[in-house]
Design a protein around this nucleic acid. Structure first.
Length: 553
RNA sequence: GCGCCCGUAGCUCAGCGGAUAGAGCAAUUGACUACGGAUCAAUAGGCCGGGGGUUCAAAUCCCUCCGGGCGCACCA
């Protein structure tokens, strides 16, 4: 008896009760929501369906609740049902029905928690997309952790996911980068609009190293700058890729903006909009009438000097993704880009697509890194650069990813490098990882002591801490689904902490291996199933946030 | 001025209409000749920024004010 079964039973009961009252009120599985009450006195599961339906039916909530309750009590696996408060229906399962889940989980193993929310849906997740003009700053790193986790979650819901990195090798920022490299090489000061930072000198030196003694022979300064541009970008980009890879994030597609221009995709996109009547000329420029689709001002796509406006690349890129067959396109940006949402949604609508469906923009708030309680400034342009490697050096991949993924992207977060670098119990990631390592240690001890999984009798899982643990294990598939629907990986992380806590409490109360000379009994064998089930779910949960589940720590 | 996000325990943060608002850390007190003490048990700590409204029920939804962060180009 898992929550889905119980929901189905409840729905059947409610439908019958309503029919008996001559009501044709339509009720679906989504209406009969079941909650796990905080307070254990309120049962294993609780439903507010009676309070929701009472009003339209004109019945007293408690009266309706009682009727549903009486019918539900007869369902197999349900130990008791009572009506409480204003009309809550509190359900208690018998131990065997609740405990059966432990076996199910062990058998489903990596499959437990998967769902079919996005079965067969093609999804493109674009994130990080930092320009190769410097190291990735912490905002990009947040998305590396969260975006990759989202990808894993969508995949676990059957989505066909492409992780994509859009990189701008076309615009003026790259020009500035190239000029900065050139200036560094020539021993000149940083150009006014150039990039500072030690990495510029480093990259310049590597370019020189790649062409020993040759740069001096290049006739014009422009040509030298071209070398720095082409080779410098390549080096920078290779560094970025490697940093991300070391962080456990690999992309399926690295998309170059240049390709859009070279293949004429930009003109193609503008022509398409022109056919749709969304383009006009004014003040010598070409405009996209985004205000027809909810934007607050129209946007330039070809400037009066003949150059493409910034948005033209976005138009072409979006069309390109659609032409590549992606149904759902998600773009993850920092809070400093939230102003783009409206115009991109206008674009989506102008192309005849569905805003917030075919295209979604996720906005992540800023991250502050603290060291010794003092903020680190993060800007490629300023001297103090905090890069992915710094984070990994300070706290490691697991703690870094976990710290970034355990908070809602709507919240600005402060990450204390000292705290997250600590390998002690004030670091939540270790609390969870330790719980997993402990399930493995218990399993090893069980094997040594002759406890195996040859017997499973769920009715023996009667301890309060076992019922708590089972309740939390049962919730995992819903948590994953919800994380997918809401694009909120932090729910998985928080869930894993809750599960780890319940496991530690269970461990404290219920032994898997018998004490001393006590004989191995069925209760020990059955508990081993529960222990292993917890290990499976912790591993699956950590996997979804890209954090390792160690066998030992 | 307009727009997006945030304001919950000392700190970092959960809580997409439900019952007595939670976790971790920090504080205080306990538990190891018991499967790993990186653990557990207990205590203490809150006008959920203020004020209105909707609802049987609001931290949650709506309005408004205050406070903080980030944006509002023919720059990318």
């Amino acid at each position: 008896m898992n929550p889905a079964d119980l929901s189905a039973s409840l729905l059947a009961v409610v439908t019958t009760v309503l029919a008996g009252r001559g009501s044709s009120e339509p009720v679906t599985i989504d209406d009969v929501s079941l909650d796990r009450p905080r307070n254990r006195d309120h049962g294993d599961w609780s439903s507010n369906i009676a309070m929701k339906l009472a009003k339209p039916l004109g019945i007293a909530p408690r009266e309706l609740a009682q009727e549903i309750s009486d019918a539900l009590a007869a369902v197999a696996g349900v130990a008791s049902v009572e009506v409480a408060g204003p009309g809550f229906i509190n359900i208690r399962l018998d131990a065997a029905a609740a405990g059966a889940l432990a076996k199910t989980i062990v058998e489903e193993d990596a499959g437990y928690g998967r769902g079919d929310l996005y079965q067969g849906v093609t999804m493109n997740l674009e994130f990080v997309s930092a320009n190769p003009t410097g190291p990735i700053h912490i905002g990009g790193v947040r998305w590396a952790a969260v975006g990759d986790s989202l990808a894993r979650i969508f995949q676990s819901q059957g989505g066909i996911v492409t992780r994509e990195y859009y990189f701008n090798d076309h615009g003026a920022q790259i020009d500035r980068f190239a000029r900065s490299l050139l200036a560094s090489w020539a021993g000149e000061p940083v150009p006014d609009d150039g990039y500072a930072g030690d990495y510029i000198a480093e990259i310049a030196a590597r370019v020189v190293e790649a062409y020993p003694g040759e740069l001096e022979t290049v006739p014009t300064r422009e040509e030298v700058q071209e070398v720095f541009r082409a080779v410098g970008v390549e080096f920078m980009f290779a560094d970025i890729k490697k940093s991300l890879h070391d962080f456990g994030v690999d992309f399926d597609v690295y998309f170059h903006e240049n390709d859009l221009h070279e293949t004429g995709a930009v003109d193609h996109a503008i022509e398409r909009l022109r056919e749709l009547g969304a383009i006009y000329e004014a003040d010598g420029a070409t405009w996209f009438r985004t205000t027809d689709f909810g934007d607050d001002k129209d946007r330039v796509v070809i400037k009066s000097d003949g150059e493409y406006g910034y948005m033209s690349g976005d138009l072409a890129y979006y069309l390109n993704k659609r032409e590549r067959g992606f149904e759902r396109n998600l773009i993850m940006l920092g809070a400093d880009h939230h102003g783009y949402v409206r115009r991109l949604m206008a674009m989506t609508a102008a192309f005849g697509d569905k805003p917030y469906y075919n295209l979604e923009i996720l906005i992540g708030q800023m991250v502050n890194l603290l060291r010794d309680g003092k903020p680190h400034r993060m800007s490629k342009r300023a001297g103090t650069v905090v890069v992915l490697e710094d984070l990994v050096d300070a706290v490691g991949v697991d703690a870094g990813r976990y710290a970034l993924v355990r908070s809602s992207i709507d919240s600005q977060i402060d990450i204390d490098l000292d705290l997250w670098g600590r390998k002690t119990n004030d670091n939540p990631v270790f609390y969870v990882q330790y719980a997993h390592a402990r399930t493995r240690a218990v399993a090893r001890n069980a094997a040594t002591s002759g406890v195996d999984r040859s017997v499973f009798d769920a009715a023996l899982l009667t301890h309060e801490s076992e019922s708590q643990l089972l309740g939390i294990l049962a919730e995992f598939p819903r948590v994953v689904r919800q994380a997918a629907e809401l694009r909120e990986p932090h729910r998985i992380a928080r869930y894993s902490e809750e599960l780890a806590g319940a496991y530690h409490r269970w461990y404290d109360n219920c032994r898997v291996t018998p004490l001393g000379e006590d004989p191995v009994a069925d209760v020990h064998r059955t508990r081993l199933w529960l222990n292993d089930a917890t290990g499976v779910v912790l591993r699956n949960a950590l996997g979804l946030v890209g954090v390792s589940a160690p066998e030992r720590m």
